[in-house]
Nucleic acid binder design. Structure first.
Lengths: 207, 207
DNA sequence: TTGATTTTCTGAACGCTGTCCAGTACATTA
DNA sequence: TAATGTACTGGACAGCGTTCAGAAAATCAA
């Protein structure tokens, strides 16, 4: 009697339909444009139904972003498995991170540019690591790459815990500025990315 | 007959009272917590009165942030006038920028982490340079510092237009991540700032 | 001092938001 | 067929930014 399975499969499917409808709105116009009522209209359900599948709007959007960042993880993992010098892998990862953020600006902003200021009035210790686990996993992959380069003696001696955070901040800085301030008279994006990656590698170089 | 002057002075005063009330709310809890109705309550005027002094909520908050960043400009200008080696001034400016952002997280986020995604659905060419002129002036001061270091032959040859943007992105990255992700297991802030500034100077060093 | 004019301010409304909950409608089981 | 349990909804609540006709107040002219 597969009734149970069918029902839970149907639940799963509706959950996904909600996510997909929300994603369409979100990708176009960002967090502000994802309104529960608009999503409900799109899938032809009542707004309140959405709350049977997601605790609140925040959880819904977080899950959308999490899925996106899982893709970045895969990209980074693929790069790390290439047969290249640690520094080259490093450079490729840094570039991939930035380009990913630029390709998915709204996901990026929600994941890394706003969370705390919104959560600060909620219950004290909501597990933030869980909420944006995929985003943080991407950081950890960068950290591993740095550790690998250090182990291979490809860079100067560093404190990996400290420097990985610095490096993350550096690539995040370019990504978030390009995404947030689209009207600033930026230099060519390719040039900027290259310059940033070069700058980071230069600061890690031996001597 | 100084009636005219008195009246325009009174207008100016009310405008300032609105800004101050808004600032209190804003500093505590950020953009979301600045509601026109709350400000109106605080100064004992009707909500609609505020619209006689500010075009909309965005303009009000921008003016608050602009004032704050004017202070950063002064700090940076003061540093640039110190009698120090260009690299040392540079380091001091970078550090001052980061520390300023950390001291005024909500101002920082509004000025550099959100603007475009909110403005993208408004009239095409609102003069963004004007809107956050003070914030951008701070960038320009950093750029000047870099130019000065280059002129003094204190750093390797660089494209100042390009590298100044890269450097800005680097310090912005640390500032914004620390501000936005307060619950992430960061290394000690002092260490991080020092590491970032060192990293930047190292990447600019000759050889 | 009175009346007309200009400036400042307000109350009520519009349309939107996230969220909750009592109650309906339906599918499954006995 | 009747009882049970799940899925869903309509309507409400409290809040938001913003607008605008009209009230109130201040100024000016006579």
């Amino acid at each position: 009697m597969g009734t149970q399975e069918r029902r839970s499969r149907e639940k799963q499917e509706l959950r996904q339909r909600i996510q997909e409808a929300a994603t369409e709105l979100f990708v176009m116009d960002g967090y502000q444009n994802v309104s529960i009522r608009k999503i409900a209209d799109r899938i032809e359900y009542a707004p309140s139904t959405i709350y049977l599948y997601f605790k609140d709007k925040e959880e819904l959007v977080q899950s959308i972003c999490n899925d996106m960042f899982a893709e970045l993880s895969e990209i980074l993992i693929a790069i790390r498995q290439l047969d290249l010098a640690p520094n080259q892998k490093m450079a490729k990862c840094l570039r991939a991170y930035i380009e990913f953020g630029l390709a998915h600006p709204n996901h990026y902003v929600v994941t890394f540019c706003t969370p705390e200021l919104q959560y600060q009035h909620q219950q004290p210790n909501v597990d933030h690591d869980q909420i944006m686990s995929a985003g943080l996993q991407c950081f950890d992959l960068l950290r591993q790459g740095l550790q690998e380069a250090l182990n291979a003696d490809a860079i100067r001696p560093i404190n990996v815990d400290l420097t990985s955070q610095t490096v993350w901040a550096q690539i995040h800085g370019l990504t978030s500025l390009l995404v947030s301030m689209q009207k600033f008279p930026w230099q060519d994006r390719e040039l900027l990315i290259t310059d940033m990656v070069d700058s980071i590698l230069r600061s890690l170089a031996k001597n």
